[in-house]
């Protein structure tokens, strides 16, 4: 093997432009953009998101464009099976068992030709589809109110408790423990002593207890964040605590906030439905998914559609919120994804 001497001439300076060395080629994405990019990849969550959008849209526009008035009774037209125009689809052709015979119930009840009820009518002759839409609206309104209390009371309470620590934290946490030790149902029943049964007492009950989990989560996160160096840096710069909360804490809490809100919503919806089902929620004649289920359950053996459709709607609603919440959690907190 030939001797090969290595000397200074054997090397050439590799030249890197200072500019090129500091260059970053990836596109600049904000955290939220990145999260939504991940969310879009999650098919289940996206389907849930679309289902929710459609449900919200339908229940809102039904304020103005309802197929029938949800509260108008047609006592002659009670318990009519579903009928979709004159399409004659089995299950939606207006035929049903009347006194043991499978006949066109619409003809038997002398319903005029142009009138039909897409999901049938209930025992008082009210259009079930309109009532389901109205009931969904109530559920979504309860969900909205629960979110509102989560976002206001829950977040502020949690941040105040976590940020101040010490004695204040101690007192606030004991209050939370007292509140969460009283069952929700007891709170609602107590509310009934003061208010009339209805949306108001449900919402007051949610306002009283619904934000507790959010406050706890926010407090725990704030405790962690408050000793982070970027918070210390803001302090040494002379930032006021309120601005630190707004500029530094809330953006860093946003994933917890979004995820927890998405888990609060189905709980609130179910809470309202449950109260209405046992009869201390939305009073008659107003519709709610809970009252529809409770009414439908009475005729379930003979007129199953009266219970099946509201049950499908509430199941899909809850499932969609839960699956979307799962998707959001994975999108905002990639480490938690399996």
């Amino acid at each position: 093997m030939a001797d090969y001497k290595i000397n200074a001439d054997s090397f050439k300076l590799a030249h890197i432009e200072k500019e090129a060395q500091e260059h970053i080629s990836t596109p600049s994405l904000t955290f939220t953009q990145d999260a939504f990019r991940r969310l879009k990849k999650n098919k289940v969550a996206m389907v849930s998101l679309w289902i929710l959008c459609i449900m919200i849209f339908l229940s809102v526009i039904s304020i103005w464009f309802s197929p029938h008035n949800p509260n108008t009774q047609h006592l002659n037209w009670n318990n009519l099976p579903p009928k979709l125009g004159n399409l004659n689809i089995p299950g939606f052709n207006g035929h049903g068992l009347v006194r043991g015979e499978y006949i066109d119930a619409y003809k038997a009840s002398k319903v005029p030709d142009g009138t039909w009820f897409a999901l049938g009518t209930d025992s008082l002759g009210r259009d079930l589809l309109s009532r389901i839409l109205a009931g969904t609206r109530v559920s979504l309104f309860v969900a909205f109110m629960a979110t509102l209390f989560d976002l206001t009371i829950g977040i502020i309470y949690g941040i105040v408790s976590g940020w101040n620590g010490g004695m204040i934290d101690n007192i606030l946490q004991r209050i939370i423990e007292i509140i969460s030790s009283v069952p929700n149902l007891v709170v609602v029943i107590l509310m009934l002593l003061v208010f009339k049964p209805g949306l108001l007492s449900i919402i007051v009950a949610i306002a009283f207890t619904g934000w507790v989990t959010m406050a706890r989560l926010i407090r725990a996160q704030t405790l962690q964040l408050r000793d982070q160096e970027f918070i210390l840096a803001a302090k040494t710069l002379g930032e006021s605590p309120i601005k630190i909360a707004w500029k530094h804490l809330i953006p860093n809490l946003s994933s917890t906030i979004i995820i927890q809100t998405m888990f609060t919503i189905p709980t609130a919806i179910f809470f309202e439905a449950f109260l209405s089902y046992i009869g201390i929620g939305i009073p008659a004649p107003k519709a709610s998914l809970g009252t529809l289920l409770s009414d439908g359950q009475k005729n379930f053996r003979f007129l199953p559609y009266q219970m099946v459709y509201p049950a499908i709607v509430i199941s899909v609603l809850m499932l969609a919120f839960n699956l979307l919440a799962d998707g959001l959690r994975d999108a905002f907190d990639p480490r938690s994804a399996r």
Partner: peptide, 19 residues
């Protein structure tokens, strides 16, 4: 606060990731 400043130890924790 304006006249005195601090440089922190951990460059990963000392910058707010959302800003």
């Amino acid at each position: 606060r304006r006249e005195t400043q601090m440089i922190f130890q951990d460059p990963y924790a000392s910058l707010n990731p959302r800003m």
